Simulated scan of single mutants.
Amino acid sequence: MWHVETGVAALVVAVGLGVAAVLLGPDGLRWWLVALAVVVCTTVAVVVPRWRYRVHRWEVSADAVYTQRGWWAQERRIAPMSRVQTVDLAQGPLARLFGLTTVTVTTASAAGPLRIEGLDRPVALALADELTRKADLVEGDAT
């Protein structure tokens, strides 16, 4: 899914740069600009999803939810079960096409929710159930 998302974005950028090069660039430089746009966008479309996959991690223990995500700016988050307020599932059209789901764990934190992307739907459903059960076992009101 990340390959398709990044590929579509890179294609849009490559077409835009190509059109700009054809309309604005001098004749000799024009095709070099088009070629450079295609090479850069193709490289991004291949490298970024693999890089994201290598960084993207999550784990649930009895006490907390751990996430790590990002490709350029990487983020690690830990949310104690006592801070979990809601667990939501979401599927965009592309994710639905691939049978993937995003789990969003809303916490009592100013940093915002934790997101676990790209889970197979059955895994996401089981994770949401597990997080809900574990959060219910913890004393307190998650504030």
Rank of each mutant, 00 (worst) to 15 (best):
L94H: 05
A35L: 15
D63S: 14
E59Q: 15
A9V: 10
V19L: 13
G18I: 05
T102K: 07
L17M: 12
D141M: 11
F98D: 07
P80N: 06
E139Y: 09
V44P: 01
D27H: 11
R52F: 11
V65E: 04
E75A: 12
V48K: 04
G99V: 05
G28V: 15
L23F: 07
S82A: 15
A142N: 11
D63A: 12
L125R: 13
W58R: 13
P93W: 10
V4I: 02
L100N: 01
V34Y: 02
Y66M: 06
V48N: 03
F98P: 01
T104F: 02
A45G: 03
L100S: 01
L131W: 02
T102R: 03
A73R: 08
I78C: 07
L33G: 09
H56K: 13
G28P: 08
L11E: 01
A124R: 12
Y66K: 00
G18S: 00
A73K: 08
V46N: 07
T143W: 08
W2V: 00
V22D: 06
D136P: 00
D88H: 06
G140P: 01
R54G: 09
T67M: 01
V39T: 14
L23T: 11
G18W: 03
A110W: 08
T42L: 14
W72Y: 09
A111I: 09
G99A: 10
A9Q: 08
G16Y: 06
R133C: 11
A62S: 13
P26Q: 14
P49I: 01
G92I: 06
V87A: 10
A14P: 00
V15K: 15
T106E: 13
A135R: 04
W58G: 10
G7S: 10
T104K: 07
A142S: 08
A9N: 09
V65T: 07
T42V: 09
V65D: 02
R50D: 05
A110R: 11
D129F: 06
W32E: 07
D63I: 14
T6E: 01
A110H: 13
L89W: 00
W31G: 06
R77C: 11
Q85M: 10
G112D: 04
G140I: 09
I78R: 11
M1Q: 05
G118K: 04
L131V: 05
G112A: 12
A135K: 03
T67I: 05
V105T: 08
D136G: 09
C41K: 06
V105G: 03
T6C: 02
R52H: 15
Q85F: 07
S82W: 14
